[in-house]
Nucleic acid binder design. Structure first.
Length: 373
DNA sequence: GAAGCGTGGAC
DNA sequence: TGTCCAAGCTT
């Protein structure tokens, strides 16, 4: 498959690793090869930029310095430490894997890629990264950087969004990766992909591996990697009800099978669904219908004076939410025995793990215009 | 195998 | 504002 001669492969390794030795990034998780450190960093780095991860990693390591600390941590503390990173199942899975490591492996890490992949949250990329960086195994670690770099070096035209394409890249990399420094090799590819061979505005003129970059030589860099287009996010519409009571704010927990699973948000009403259930509903009646539905569902007996309706937009990977925020202050504590949620005192708000949407809702709430008349 | 899952940076 | 992408994994 790969056309490179043995001589060219050797020259590439030397060129890449010499460059890496002189120019590798000084990152907090590169201070040692502790599998726990490599693991936590790799999980955080999934679909997340290095600059974003650094402060999270440093705080996380202070708070949960060992596998044991991670395994024993209360989930709300873990989620608070993960707040704002997104893909919250990552930290839940990581804790499960930590417990798995202690229970099934007596805290001793398995060192092969296949065994590592058995742990929840560790897929082919992360298993390859841990195996090569922490355990010196000659395993490929194919992330977005590796897809981009090798697709250009070797002009691989397979669509990288297809699951089966990974194997093509892994096979090629297995012939190139050096047995003596596999971890450095994989990390060098990632540093290359983050510096010269970037997705946007690459600088191949100064790239240390420009002579090996067939796509660059052929003037075809922009053609690689081949990737099918992603779908546009679907629009969704909600009302968020901010209810302040003497004992605190009302929150509802997201279901475990939906977006932002098990996180706590202001109560939301799906107004798209409301319109499906009641096709005659006009736009200016939706707000009242939403409020009435909420009061009916919760059996809260109160004369709510909702004010304002700022709209908070938030885009997830597959959905674009348009959330109209309405708020009311209840002077007397209502009967909440039929309310499926919790009342959070003001002083406890800061201990909750708020996804970015909830932060935006809170900001909009604080900025709301108080109508005096 | 396709779809679902968060967020922020860069342009 | 829109679009693409970033050290992907699970179902």
């Amino acid at each position: 498959m790969i056309k490179w001669s043995d001589k060219k492969i050797k020259e590439f390794r030397v060129t890449l690793l010499n460059w890496y030795d002189a120019n590798c990034r000084d990152l907090p998780w590169r201070q040692d090869h502790e599998p726990y450190h490599i693991w936590v960093s790799e999980i955080m780095l999934q679909q997340t930029q290095v600059a974003t991860v650094i402060p999270y990693y440093q705080r996380f390591m202070k708070q949960f310095p060992t596998i044991e600390a991670l395994a024993q941590a209360p989930e709300d503390q873990l989620l608070k430490a993960w707040e704002g990173l997104g893909y919250y199942s990552r930290v839940r899975n990581m804790q499960r894997a930590a417990q798995q490591l202690l229970a099934d492996y007596d805290g001793q890490w398995p060192q092969t890629k296949a065994e590592l992949q058995e742990l929840v949250g560790i897929g082919p990329y992360t298993a390859g990264a841990i195996a090569s960086i922490a355990f010196n195994q000659p395993e490929p670690a194919v992330d977005g950087n590796a897809f981009r770099v090798f697709s250009q070096l070797l002009e691989i035209e397979a669509d990288i969004t297809k699951p089966q394409t990974r194997g093509i890249f892994e096979e090629a990399i297995r012939r190139i990766i050096p047995a003596d420094r596999p971890g450095d090799f994989n990390q060098a590819i990632m540093d290359l992909g983050a510096s010269f061979m970037t997705a946007k505005n690459p600088d191949n003129v100064h790239s240390p591996v420009r002579e090996f970059n067939q796509a660059y030589i052929d003037g075809r860099v922009a053609e690689f990697p081949v990737r099918s287009k992603r779908l546009k996010p679907v629009d969704k519409h909600y009302f968020a009800l901010v209810l302040q009571t003497p004992k605190g704010y009302l929150f509802q927990q997201r279901a475990s099978n939906e977006l932002l699973a098990k996180l706590w948000l202001f109560p939301l009403i799906d107004t798209d669904q409301l319109k499906v259930e009641n096709p005659d509903l006009t736009d200016d009646m939706v707000i009242e219908a939403a409020e009435n539905k909420f009061l009916a569902d919760t059996e809260i007996k109160a004369d709510l004076q909702f004010v304002d309706a700022p709209i908070v937009n938030h885009t997830f990977t597959h959905q674009k939410w348009h959330v109209t925020l309405v708020s009311a202050e209840l002077q007397n504590q209502p009967d909440l025995s039929h309310f499926a949620g919790q009342v959070v005192p003001v002083e406890k708000l800061a201990t909750m793990a708020w996804p970015t949407l909830q932060k935006k809702l809170w900001t909009a709430y604080e900025k709301r215009q108080i109508k005096l008349f």
